[in-house]
Each structure stands twice: as structure tokens, then as C-alpha cells.
Design a protein around this nucleic acid. Structure first.
Length: 290
DNA sequence: AGGGGAACCCGTACGC
DNA sequence: TGCGTACGGGTTCCCC
């Protein structure tokens, strides 16, 4: 389940490996993952374009595409450049894989969209359950979409005050507010669970009940955990794979997520799993998270 | 406006 | 064993 650290890992890999490449061909095997363009329109938009950059926003992988040369001019004589973004949302089982002939076996099935590059390599979007999406957005649409997303927790300007401003007035439980992409970008079930454990905050607390030291602790926990997970190349709990098909290592540093019934590393009491907090699987220590 | 619930999709787990 | 069914999980969209 790619959240911020996993998506960041994929985006950095792709930036290193396919930036500057151009798209020779697009093959759509499963068109139900497409948004914003059908198969023909997608091919029309991206064929011949250069991948100018690959980066992350929230849990999205964004490919900036540019036409290398003006493909025409409008009535004022200005060059018309095709430009836009492929925005990939892997959700649970989606992965973006660079295929240069060394891709691990077993990742060749469940391919949905393949971008063949000018040098013969391929960029695949693979998705077993196909709940993930591949969107085409023109610059205006992408800007509009970005405005609906909350702040990035690893930005330099993201302080405890920013966090409180983003979430603080909500009447929902704190765990649900943390995972609301419109309020805060990039945090899902794994990192919300981990940050609340680290900050010793009960996931079922009403968001607006948090006091200043708790906002500071939660902010510090979020940044520390997200950063450490990026260093470990993310958490591979079930399906997540990076752009080379490899797993991430952060699963070994998880303190709460996936550790139900095991002892709390802080107080030794048994960690509890429940669906009662926000309808999602939540693991926490009922003894030392208050 | 903010929040709840259904829909999307299919491998996996479980019951008969 | 084989079949049928319930479930999960993030986001979007609809509705209250």
C-alpha cells in the first residue's frame, strides 16, 4: 500500500532512470484503470513526448510530459507545445516498473498500461486488483486537482502549527483526520497508526481535543517516521514494490501496524487491533496511548 | 459544509 | 476438492 514514503521511493527511482526518455508507444491492456483519457486519447497525448521529470505529490506519482518540439502554432503564431501530466495512484496493489530486461519474474502478469520508451525499455503500470488509476491531466486540470490536496508533511514550512491548522477544527477522530488527503497529504493507515503510537495519542481521540504538546509530538513523530521510512525505501507489507520490483525495509521498524497481540515496545502491554475507530484496521496500545 | 456510505476491483480466506 | 461468498483497502462521488 504505497503511502508517502513508498511513492517517494518510486518517484525518485523513476526520476533517476527514465527522466529524459521519450515515449515511443503506449499499450493499454486494461482500460478500466484509465482516468481523464481513453486509450486512444492517452496515446495521442503522450506518444513522442519526453518525460521531463518524475516526482511525488501526496500518494501520487507524477510524470511531467513535454513535447520536444513545437508541434504547430496557433493563430497568433505562438508555438503550441503539448504538455501535461500522467498521474498514477497505485492504491493497494499498483506498481510502476521499469523493464530493462532485468525485471524479476512474476511481475510480468497483471500489466495494465505499458509505455514503451525510445531506447526499448518499458515503463509498466502493473495492478493486480486494478483499484489504482492512471490519469491524464492537462496543466490546468492538474493545478486544480493539486489545490484539493492538503500540505506536504515533509515540506520545510510544515510545522506543528501547520499541522494543527490543517486538522485542528475537525470533529472526527484524529486517525481519520490524519488520513484525509484534503487535510494532509500522503499519510495512510500504516503511517497514521505509527505516528499515533509514537506520539502516545489514542487514535479514537476527537481531533479538536488535542492540546499543544500533543500537536508538537504528533508533528515530530510524523516527520521522523516518514523520513526514516524513505531511508528504508518504504514498507512492503504485502504488495508494495519499488520501480525495480524490490521490497522496502521499513516493515522491520514498525512499532504498531501489523503487530496486534504483540507486546508494546514502550510499556510491554499487548497491542490491540480494532475496527471501531474509523472502520479501518487500527492497532494501538490502550495502556500508553492516551 | 462536513461527514457518512456506496462503488470501484479481485485475490485471499473461509464456509459448506 | 470444489464452489460460493464475504472481506479489505484509498479515493471519489452522491447524499444527508
Amino acid at each position: 500500500m504505497p503511502e508517502l514514503p513508498e511513492t517517494e521511493t518510486i518517484a525518485r527511482d523513476l526520476q533517476a532512470r527514465v527522466r529524459g526518455a521519450s515515449v515511443r508507444d503506449v499499450t493499454v491492456l486494461r482500460d478500466d484503470v484509465l482516468r481523464g483519457a481513453n486509450a486512444g486519447e492517452l496515446a495521442e497525448h503522450v506518444t513522442g513526448c519526453t518525460i521531463a521529470a518524475v516526482w511525488r505529490r501526496a500518494k501520487l506519482i507524477v510524470l511531467d510530459l513535454e513535447a520536444p518540439r513545437a508541434s504547430g502554432s496557433n493563430h497568433c503564431g505562438h508555438a503550441i507545445t503539448r504538455a501535461g501530466h500522467i498521474v498514477v495512484q497505485p492504491r493497494f496493489t499498483g506498481s510502476l516498473l521499469v523493464d530493462d530486461g532485468t525485471l524479476p519474474e512474476g511481475l510480468a502478469d497483471y500489466l495494465t498500461v505499458t509505455f514503451t520508451l525510445h531506447d526499448g525499455r518499458a515503463l509498466h503500470y502493473r495492478d493486480v486488483r486494478r483499484l489504482g488509476t492512471v490519469s491524464w491531466m492537462n496543466p490546468a486540470r492538474f493545478a486544480e486537482y493539486q489545490r484539493t490536496l492538503g500540505p506536504e508533511p515533509l515540506d520545510d514550512e510544515f510545522t506543528a502549527t501547520t499541522l494543527r491548522a490543517a486538522l485542528g477544527d475537525s470533529s472526527r477522530v484524529i486517525k481519520a483526520a490524519l488520513m484525509d488527503q484534503h487535510r494532509l497529504a500522503g499519510v495512510g493507515n500504516i503511517y497514521a497508526t505509527e505516528a499515533l503510537w509514537a506520539a502516545q495519542i489514542d487514535p479514537s481521540r476527537e481531533t479538536r481535543s488535542l492540546v499543544e504538546p500533543e500537536w508538537v509530538a504528533l508533528h515530530d513523530a510524523l516527520r521522523r517516521i516518514l523520513t526514516a521510512s524513505i531511508t528504508a525505501r518504504g514498507t512492503s507489507f504485502r504488495d508494495y514494490r519499488d520501480a525495480s520490483g524490490e521490497r522496502g525495509d521499513f516493515v522491520r521498524q514498525l512499532q504498531a501496524y501489523g503487530r496486534e497481540a504483540q507486546p508494546c515496545a514502550r510499556c510491554g502491554k499487548r497491542l490491540i487491533a480494532t475496527h471501531a475507530v474509523d472502520g479501518r484496521n487500527t492497532v494501538f496500545c490502550a495502556y500508553c496511548q492516551r
